[in-house]
Nucleic acid binder design. Sequence first.
RNA 1: GCGGACGUGGCGGAACUGGUAGACGCAACGGACUUAAAAUCCGUCGGCCGCAAGGCCAUGGGGGUUCGAGUCCCCCCGCCCGCACCA
Length: 875
Amino acid sequence: MSRYNPKEVEPKWRARWDAAGAFRTSNDRKKPKYFVLEMFPYPSGRIHIGHVRNYAMGDVVARYKRACGFSVLHPMGWDAFGLPAENAAMQTGKHPRDWTLANIETMKEQLKSMGLALDWDREVATCNPDYYRWQQKLFLDFWKAGFVERRESYVNWDPVDMTVLANEQVIDGKGWRSGAPVERKKLSQWFFKITDKAEDLLAALDDGRLKGWPENVRLMQRNWIGKSKGLRMKFPFADGMKGPNGEDGLEVYTTRPDTLFGASFAAVAIDHPLAAHYAAKDKDLAAFIADCQKVGTSEEAIEKAEKRGYKLPLRIAHPFVDGRAFPVFVANFVLMNYGTGAIFGSAGHDQRDLDFARKYGLEVIPVVLPPGADPATFRVEDEAYVGPGTLFNSGFLNGLTIDEGIAAAIARIEEMGLGRGATNWRLRDWGVSRQRYWGCPIPAIHCEKCGVVPVQEKDLPVELPEVEASEFAIPGNPLTRTPEWLNVPCPECGGPGKRETDTMDTFVDSSWYFARFATRPETRPEGPVDRSDAGYWLPVDQYIGGIEHAILHLLYARWFTRAMKDTGHLSVDEPFENLFTQGMVTHATYRDEKGNWLLPEDVVVENGAARHAESGKPVAIGPIEKMSKSKKNVVSPEGIADKYGADAARWFMLSDSPPERDVEWTDAGVAGAWKLVQRIWDAVEPAEGALKRHDFSKPPAEADTPLRRATHETIAGVTDDIENFRFNKAIARIYAFLNVLKDAPPARREDGSPANGPRAEAYAQAEALGALVRLIAPFIPHLAEECWERLGGEGFVCDAPWPKADPALLVRSTLTLGVQVNGKRRAEIEVPASADNAAVEKAALSDPAVARHIDGLTLRKVVVVPGRVVNIVAN
RNA sequence: GCGGACGUGGCGGAACUGGUAGACGCAACGGACUUAAAAUCCGUCGGCCGCAAGGCCAUGGGGGUUCGAGUCCCCCCGCCCGCACCA
């Protein structure tokens, strides 16, 4: 027997596939179509093992669907704009474009070495002007359609470097380079008005349009969109006071108007107009606000910050209780962009309100009584009561449930003319402005006379100007320092204008790339997409990517698709018919004595202790985490492929862990996968030409053998597992089948009687091997091709039809059932599959072990679960 | 803090709508082959008691529903992901 050598075999088959154009998607629209797409990678430098997992999964689906007779589109591209390229420019002095393009080249080679069935002809890179010019066209169309708006919004501001920071560049509230505490700064920025479509984005989650999405992702999106019904109402100012612009009260939004009688304070956001008004006269308040501004813009940072407030010299009156009035605070936990930027606090029934009330010595008035509690003794101590109950201490609301109370309170407020029931969204409009060079330029020009005007379509693309690589070491956006690019005539009046220097969020780039893939490059139209091609291929039938994209990317792409439909580019409103979110690849983290992160390849682990491979110095083993460059817990697939081949790496990434769960990378795992590869080759090698010696449409007469049963059960099982994204189980099934194949005795019937001549035996073996090779082909395609050729299969195995299970061989004649006595398993019985419940019960009761356990007891009940188990209840 | 997942042998995991817990793989151990090693093959492999037959315990912890719970419900603990300028 010969050793299987992936180093020779794998490149050989890749070259043959290439030469035959095996994976170039045809424009043949007679076959049913199937568009399978994995989230395209950011070209960070090298492929890591997480990519291998993602793309191996997509490849299994693509190759499987192809075998099932679909015309499959399986393309690849690059999410090529973004911050890391500018960071690299700072560190290495390389231009972001050069760095990115070099990375793409490297990673493309690496991806190719995995043997993915990709149509590389359709490759796109978002940093290519060919791509982003059409994104600029879409931007202009959206602008015309009223989907785009400019408004003020906050950014993280580094006061030392005088530059805008991404959330990622804010570490513990400080600028990553300067170390200075980050401040918030208001800038005029571009927004996509995604909230205008909030209703439909939400509705589609539940009306069946996204039934191919995992429930948890739909739930997360539902919560993110966050539709709430509540009350927008005005609290009149007490003591005859007026607001800064003469208002007579404070407008708040609440989802719990039922708790109005428990109100003991109100609070406004630090950027609320009222706060600004008083801060103008009150230095301490101004200082308080400035202090609160020294926290990042991320919701997490705001929510985690200690709850703090500043009392305004202003009180508001309770709408229902004459003479009751309470204070108004400026508070850091109130968000300006939710509701009205002002709340009332009902401390008994909201934890944040309660914490705040305790801190500032405010009254806590419980108004919801838990079921069964005594109103005389019920107290709220450290924990707000947010459960169901009936209202008390609440005047006209007393005795009502929460829902009744909400309705009654809204009705009364509306009657009094103080407010109206209102729907509020948590979802905010999408701020797409980034004050950075390496992104798609926003096609707008600022003119002193005409204001902000769109670039004319004939002038697209607005290409990024050449700038020196050294520019990136200087804080701020290089685009603002490039006068020859910056200064252009106004397209409307011809007077002096300046280009918009903001570029687009890279999420814009990834919101429509799937549509760009629909057309072959040589027939791409003068436009973002070809309607006919997109109409044929979209929606994506199967989208696969990380769970970390569950909200932002997937929501933005859903909105973008709708916006493209509205502007006449597409005819669907949901881009992704089926979604699969795969888990991440994790690895232990390592740090040396000085706390520096170490690569796994530089660390030796023995008996649970780690040391540096070269110096031998001790290494601390940290928690198992998502692989990330910053913590260096990354594994390069190249070393793996070098040692074991791409097939083994693919096999390991798909075996063991369920695809939706995180998987920890281990060296032992790949070695095991490599053993499997060799095992399959060993089984196939001696059977040279076996497929040529049989007519598989005509099984021999005595055809019911254990091996044939196993073959057909495996075909049925693996098919079902692939359809349901249970690759780990498909693989376990293949192992089990190999065990049967290895031990396959001269073929016998199920009852053990020798039934077959050598011809039938050979038939069963050949059939088993032929099925095996086609079943493994989606997982380990190189080995499968080599085996297929060896067995004498026709053409490429990647073009061979998927094997079909013979239903007659899937039926069992006897069943093995467990027998329980009082829920504990005591025996096992074998019964004919046709036995009825009475016969099964009789067989169970007559089993000696069962008889022993029920001896002396009175039989109460016998539960027979057909095909499963018998439970005898006796005492 | 808010939202979403997850927790089963030494390890990754399997167990279909509540029905025989531990499939399959890895590691480990014992043996065969070999001058030796690698590779390969055969066997053992949740814990405890027992010569055995068999019994008891066991799915993060505690309670509940049920003839029957890894699976459903309540409480608690732990870990991971996302939180709008990372992609």
